[in-house]
Design a protein around this nucleic acid. Structure first.
Length: 675
RNA sequence: UGCCCGAUGGUGUAACUGGCAACACGUCUGGUUUUGGUCCAGAAGAGUCUAGGUUCGAGCCCUAGUCGGGCAACCA
């Protein structure tokens, strides 16, 4: 138990409370239970970090259990990908388990249930059973098979198991309560017949257990103490407990289920079904497309395990639904990469720069720091020559005072090189700049120690020597959806919000030659641009870099560029709220205020009162005497209305009278003012 | 219409379990800087969904309401 001073999230609190109540700490055991029917995403990372974090905090084992009870959807490919992702995230599971390992035990328990008269085989159609289930507000009706004899049930279930029936013809149901307010308790299904090979058990089984019958029992078999899942399983808890009641042996530890809210990320979707749709519709290139919120997508994009763990940590665990802004995720990756990424230079949108006073044919190697944040990171060499590429965006023929980059007649520094001054431009017939000519101060070489090199200039540009540059493909990504919560619109499908410009490919960017040696998983900062990493599509002939995330850019914010995706939520406080409600809100704590805050509150009440009617305040005259603040607010509002010509009546007089005789000075003063 | 959850600055979380709301992101200033990055200093922004109640005192407790979410797959 480290970091005991930190506040616990409510799940950790539950565990801590159990410990305090006498649970022996060696009984603690957790599990992460994915279904191998898709890839893990950033939402799963929350659950992984929670469960493995619990294990770490309380020094208890955490199992990885594949919930593989549905062979129609599950595949070995997903099992492998999930294990890979969890390991990459940096977690070690105690035991690798599968629900399918328990098929025999589960079957035996089901037979016991039948013998106890608590389960029966139903041969009706799915539609008929759904019909009988009733609705949340009306009770269900019993199946005609509900009271079949134990012998008949046993025989039918045996035949189900032996494959004597076709898929979908019979099911095994628990006999619980067809009129329970909890729909899940209305004789839920335990087993169905499925004719499909299972990725682990092959064709051994013809019947497969449903989630509810498998999950809690698996927890029990593994002696998991705390079974943590997401909120949509809350109503399953009653069933979870009912099933445990049937098989529980009090010499063993009984698991408990607790639920937390799943995490949503802005501008993306987070359900496996929807992610699968993006993959199958070829909207993205695959589960690990760098635009996907999957662990594998984020990894390919250049995110680190540290950054994802950090994101989970700062996001927290609660029971309310929320949409976390991607900017928080971006902060986490920038924070990590800033400390570790090697600084290099690359030009994405080149324009030729000729240094007219630098000797033709001359080349020199300059020294570049690998990472100014890390004094031990060393340096590397970068070649310099007369003709360079710089970023087209870094030059303007005539620019305002706030443009810190290259213009005609102004000096800027070339990073790690010389200070230059813009002299002239060469344009093509259409007026596009094809070359920029400049002169450089040959005394100003970085690191030379001369006075000239120490001179302060307005800006520093990145560059690359044309002769030495290597070419590479760069892939830049924008958010996959244009809407903050694309799947939250009841009238629109999330696919309508797909951002058509989420991928921008730069076929030919120019990079310093140092990058020729780049390896997969190396992290680079292309200075002044952002963080980049090699994509798996790379080979020695053709380098491909993914842009992980841009640097924070306070210059971009100043530019009016309307094309920037708007990050700001539209909703503003107070909008659509009635003035009187606003006044009530401000008034509530009025009596606690003083000084500036008091004056401010008073002024805004007076201001709001201008648009309040008598009908609004009349019902507030009998606000209880204790709610002084509200009464002061009403008094102030009344004053404004009276000034505007409101005619006095007995209710008004009574209210003022009551105010005058109150013990609160503020209220008395306001009453005095208008009496 | 029934049952079950939830509601704290723009966003995500906190508040030592009842003592007048804190942290992070984001935003805005200013400083440092050979990255308009980093770093440093500072600011603005909520009075805790509403109304009652209990209490000396409520974001935390009680009651009623409002709003949001979940629950009727041979999915998990």
């Amino acid at each position: 138990m480290t970091e005991a001073s930190e506040s616990l999230n409510f799940i950790e609190q539950i565990v801590a409370d159990d410990l305090k109540a006498g649970l022996s700490s060696d009984k603690l055991r957790f599990r992460f239970p994915p279904e191998p029917n898709g890839y893990l995403h950033i939402g799963h990372a929350a659950s992984i970090c929670l469960n493995f974090g619990l294990g770490k905090r309380f020094n208890a084992p955490v199992n990885l259990r594949f919930d593989d009870t549905n062979p129609t959807k599950e595949e070995q490919e997903y099992v492998d990908a999930i294990k890979n992702d969890i390991a990459w995230l940096g977690f070690k599971w105690a035991t690798e388990c599968y629900s399918s390992d328990y098929f025999q035990q589960l079957y035996d328990w089901a037979v016991e249930l039948i013998k106890k008269g608590k389960a029966y085989v139903d041969g009706q159609s799915a539609e008929a059973m759904a019909e009988q289930k009733g609705t949340p507000t009306t009770p269900g009706t019993a199946s005609p098979h509900r009271n079949q004899s134990v012998e008949e049930n046993l025989e039918l279930f045996e035949k189900m198991k032996n494959g004597e029936f076709e898929a979908g013809t019979y099911v095994l149901r628990a006999k619980i309560d067809m009129s329970s307010p909890n729909m899940l308790m209305r004789d839920p299904l335990l087993y169905r017949i499925v004719n499909k090979a299972h990725h682990r058990t092959g064709t051994e089984w013809c019947v497969y257990p449903m989630y509810d019958w498998a999950h809690g029992q698996s927890d029990y078999l593994e002696q998991v103490s705390h079974s943590i899942c997401t909120l949509e399983f809350k109503s399953h808890r009653e069933l979870y407990d009912w099933f445990l009641d049937q098989i529980y042996d009090d010499k063993k530890h009984r698991p408990k289920q607790r639920e937390f809210a799943r995490r949503n990320l802005s501008y993306t979707v987070m359900s496996k079904r929807k992610l699968l749709e993006l993959v199958q519709s070829k909207t993205v290139a695959g589960w690990d497309d760098p635009r996907m919120p999957t662990i594998s997508g984020l990894r390919r994009r250049g995110y680190t395990p540290e950054s994802i763990r950090k994101f989970s940590e700062v996001s927290g665990i609660t029971k309310r639904d929320s949409v976390t802004d991607v900017s928080l995720l971006e902060f986490c990756i920038r924070e990590d990469l800033n400390k570790t990424a090697t600084r290099v230079m690359g030009v994405l949108d080149p324009v030729k720069l000729v240094i007219t006073n630098y000797p033709e044919g001359k080349e020199e190697m300059l020294t570049a720091e690998n990472n100014p944040e890390d004094p031990n990171s060393g340096t590397h060499e970068v070649p310099f020559s007369r003709e360079l590429y710089i970023e087209r965006e870094d030059f303007k023929e005539d620019a305002g005072n706030k443009f810190f980059r290259l213009t005609i007649g102004q000096e800027v520094r070339l990073k790690n090189a010389y200070i230059i001054k813009g002299e002239s431009v060469v344009k093509d017939s259409e007026g596009n700049i094809t070359e920029i000519h400049c002169t450089c101060d040959l005394d100003s070489r970085s690191g030379s120690g001369t006075d000239a090199s120490a001179r302060k200039v307005k800006g520093t540009l990145h560059w690359v020597s044309i002769k030495h540059a290597i070419k590479a493909e760069i892939r830049e990504y924008d958010r996959l959806f244009l809407d903050e919560a694309p799947d939250s619109h009841q009238d629109k499908n999330f696919m309508e919000f797909v951002n058509p410009d989420s991928l921008n490919i730069i076929k030919e960017a120019y990079l310093e030659p140092f990058l020729k040696e780049a390896q997969m998983d190396d992290k680079f900062q292309f200075q002044r641009l952002g963080y980049f990493t090699l994509d798996k599509d790379s080979n020695s002939e053709h380098l491909v870099f993914n842009k992980t995330v841009g640097l924070r850019d306070s210059w971009a914010k100043q530019k009016p560029k309307a094309a920037q995706p708007n990050n700001q939520p539209v909703a503003q406080q107070g909008q659509g709220r009635k003035p009187i409600d606003e006044i009530k809100k401000i008034s509530k704590k009025y009596a606690n205020l003083s000084g500036d805050k008091l004056d401010k509150a008073r002024a805004s009440i007076m201001n709001l009162a201008e648009s309040v009617t008598y009908e609004d305040i009349e019902p507030l005259f009998n606000t209880s005497a204790k709610k002084v603040g509200t009464r002061i607010g009403v008094m102030l509002t009344l004053g404004v209305l009276l000034k505007k010509g409101l005619v006095r009546n007995s209710e008004i007089d009574a209210f003022i009278e009551a105010g005058l005789s109150d013990s609160n000075e503020l209220l008395v003063a306001e009453a005095e003012a208008i009496k």
